[in-house]
Nucleic acid binder design. Structure first.
Lengths: 375, 375
DNA sequence: ACTTGGCACTCCAGGTGGGGGAGTGCCAGA
DNA sequence: TCTGGCACTCCCCCACCTGGAGTGCCAAGT
């Protein structure tokens, strides 16, 4: 048996051909040395199958495999290995007497143990840097990254705007846009701007508005958003009676904005790339597009990644989204140091260049993290 | 001959069966009366062909046509009419001895002269109103409208955020987010918020920032954006020497934001609906998706509509976008009174329910216009 | 002059029926 | 344990056919 699979790929230095796991398992007893060699070749066969299948999109047979890859054994031997791999559930045949294709489990093993991270060429690195450097503001950074990622990976790219949770209140602006209607603008230290409209009972004088503004900034400025929300709840109590009703209204809306933050914005690009892999998705392309229009789903997909630097791969049902059961999702997060500001990733067919895509995702996240961390 | 085609559909009361145009044309001389009857029946046949084809997506033949529609003539007569319609380029047959399908020219005539506007049911109206009323801010209004439109028409929906050009400066906020780096936030009376970051030579004191803010608001507040841009250009001259460099930097960025407004934001929804009509697009679905990711293209598509209340239909090559030559675009604009705030519309297959879609687009634009005009 | 039924003709859709070929599993021998 | 050989399976592709829908045209009717 080939050792089990973890859930996280690594984006660090390549770790292909790591030592085998425990040799425990049924079957005839063999010497350790021989066993290792066997194991290793089987893994090599699996790798070859995945790589060929990713390129050709056709079931790969023993003969072609033995020819194209320097396995040093005959097709017949490869056949034996393939039979074993099939028994263990790593590959399958679409129909009797056809070649083999990887199963989800096979892809998983490939990602966990067989795929190093393909380093980017210098040209690619420069392209990334140049492309992102031209950004003029936060929106632009996100827009550029998502397009870049889609272009590099030739898949659908998803980038989450820097999350509100981990940032602090920089400034709160209150403007009366028409009598009795206030616009409050919340500015965070990640340069993100949130706006809300609040209706108050009656028109306010300009100096009242100014005082509201002052009170809010004094109390909430510099706090983490979660703390600010808590503080906002207590504000009306301590206020002068004249301001209390307005403050109550403002606080309510602020808390909504701060805590519920139901508006986690997300940018998407490269949906056109889905059509290239339309065959892989058979008839479910529509379902995939629908799923990708759901913010909730996207957040679920890219929100899982914990600390920046870790690239997560989810294959097929591992995505926990039924409509995406024929896809694979590669996600990571970007941020400064250990604090994640947001997630990003790509969605593509399971038949995907994992090493290349993982490194592209990792690299873009890295640059974006640096860019936003530099403030 | 059937009179030529204009470019704009109408969203007012139905104008089906308007009187014929001039009877000038080659061919044998006939009496006016007979000529009219003939003309009219041919148009009716065209309408029937379009309607059936929209429903069935199959070339429609003379027999089915005579049966399903109360034309009062035999299939043979219908065949003659169809031959004439084909000569004139309104319909075509995919191959010899198949039924007929409308050409772009045929759809155009259908839209111009044959299609009334299907009124919405009361339930639909209520649904629209309810759905849009729950919006909490501008972003939400746009988001909800675009989704609603996609759902109602079952096509791809496009909604442009209220354009900057026709609105006025409500307030300008200047905040120093880190030493030497200013965030300027521009708030318009359409409740739109634009943000930009400006780097200045050296850190500023808080009172300097306050003065900058005051100067900008005094000079630009209440003006139309275009005028504000012009005014901003002159600002640095009249300012006190201490403020001049900062004002110059701010003015530059403001003018960019105000005039170039290269960031016309656009919301998109319902791309999944494209797959439903994938057959109509043959293999060009990818091109369509790519085109729809280009802001420029989208602006071109929905930016053409002039005054609110007019629904524009562009069919095939009329879109002036090569990738969309197999689609039809229905667009309008929304706004208050005569001033358009932005465009909206849908993109779908040429084989589309024009009356229904046109009325849906018109209705949603109407409600959105009211909603934003109510401020 | 328009309409209608009849009729021969065209051409696609869909089903059928083989080969050709790629791939497998198994076995016996090295 | 590896290898070559061999029989077998099953898909893919192509060629062929045939039913049916639809057309165009013509001659007769109104």
């Amino acid at each position: 048996m080939i050792p089990g699979s973890g859930r996280h790929g690594r984006a660090g230095p390549a770790n292909r051909r790591v030592g085998p796991g425990g040799p425990v398992g049924p079957g005839p007893v063999v010497t350790e040395g021989v066993r290792d060699v066997l194991e290793e070749r089987r893994l090599e066969v699996l790798r070859a199958i995945v790589e060929d299948f990713v390129l050709s999109n056709e079931p790969v047979g023993s003969k072609a495999l033995a020819e194209r890859h320097a396995l040093g054994v005959s097709p017949a031997t490869v056949r034996n290995d393939m039979a074993a791999l099939e028994d263990e559930g790593y590959i399958t045949q679409p129909h009797t007497s056809a070649g083999r294709i990887p199963t989800d489990k096979g892809y998983r093993l490939f990602v966990d143990r067989l795929s190093g991270v393909k380093p980017l060429s210098r040209a690619e690195r420069r392209a990334i840097q140049n492309f992102l450097e031209g950004a003029v503001d936060l929106d632009d950074v996100v827009l550029r990254s998502v397009r870049l990622l889609a272009q590099l990976t030739r898949q659908v790219a998803v980038v989450q705007y820097p999350s509100l949770t981990s940032s602090r209140v920089r400034h709160i602006e209150v403007v009366q846009i028409s009598p009795g209607r206030l616009l409050i603008v919340l500015i965070t230290d990640t340069a993100r701007v949130e706006q809300r409209i609040v209706d108050v009972a009656e028109p306010l004088e300009e100096d009242v508005v100014a005082e509201l503004r002052a009170v809010l900034n004094r109390a909430l400025g510099g706090r983490r958003l979660a703390d600010a929300a808590a503080e906002a709840a207590t504000l009306p109590e301590g206020a002068s009676p004249g301001l209390r009703p307005q403050l109550t209204a403002l606080a309510t809306v602020l808390i909504e904005t701060l805590v519920e933050r139901h508006e986690e914005r997300i940018a998407l690009a490269g949906t056109a790339n889905l059509t290239r892999s339309a065959l892989d998705f058979s008839d479910s392309l529509r379902m995939i597009l629908e799923a990708l229009e759901e913010q909730v789903v996207l957040l679920k997909l890219i929100g899982w990644a914990r600390e920046p630097g870790t690239v997560t791969v989810r294959i097929g049902r591992e995505t926990d989204v039924d409509a995406l059961r024929s896809t694979a999702v590669i996600a990571t997060s970007y941020g400064r140091g250990n604090a994640a500001l947001g997630g990003m990733g790509v969605v593509g067919p399971k038949r995907m260049d994992y090493p290349g895509t993982m490194s592209a995702v990792w690299a873009v996240a890295n640059y974006v993290g640096e860019l936003l961390g530099a403030d």
